[in-house]
Amino acid sequence: MIPAAFEYYRPKDMAGVLSILEEHGDDARVMAGGHSLIPMMKLRMADVPHLIDLQDVGGMSDIEIGSDSLRIGAMVTQSQIIEHAELAQVAPILREAALQIADPQVRYMGTVGGNVANGDPGNDMPGLMQCLDASFTVVGPDGERDIAARDFYEAAYMTAREDEEVLTAVTVPLPKGGYAYEKQKRKIGDYATAAAAVQIVKEGGACASASIAMTNLSDTPVYSEAAGAALVGTSVDDAALKAAVSAMLEDIDPADDNRGPVAFKNHVAGVILRRAIERAWSRA
């Protein structure tokens, strides 16, 4: 399987990337690790006459941990997330999720920026970033802007990023409390049948706040504000878990596919969310 022919560019700076994007419009696309884009080009699901490889651009490969937030450059790979000891301390959910993405070879290449920019509902980091209330920095011909992860996803492969913008970094407020990223998949290397990202804060035995997002259960990731709200003020007992699961089921919209029919997806989503909340609560 060989993709259709294209012109290849490897600019040394962002100005070079932006000028090629401006010149060729939606005939040009950037490539980070290529582990979503190249398979799609092979399958003719992506037509990319002008391919811009970001590997030499620089300035997008750092993980910076501040006092109230952390910033991950778009070109940081999933394996770098896993190996970063300080990151695992301050935001362990990132490592827990990255370990459940694909396999070692894919994680050496796949980047955080590519994962969140791709717009495939199967990608794990978009839901994770919605749970964490992250924001994405994009740069384009008119300069830089930040877009909240919760406002970024419009439909499958459709995001708030304009064609001539490049995503440069992800900023995450330092997460608080217990966490879990729970994923049901058929095998390693498979996308989720259902996955849940949960971050939960406990105060005096009760839930003070909870944030919940779901993966691959709609054509976008689903941040379920209502599911989180169902836990607040409770002791996260069985009734609260049931309420959170029902609230989440109202927000998702799974489709029939090779991972199963809708009824099965709803069932798995409920099981996975329950497990994720219980694990996050046990760590809170």
Partner: peptide
Amino acid sequence: ETSHCGACTVTINGKSVKSCTMF
């Protein structure tokens, strides 16, 4: 040829890579 099986794995600059998924 779809980056699943790993038969094409090589080491590139110290990383294991599926060479069917790199130009």
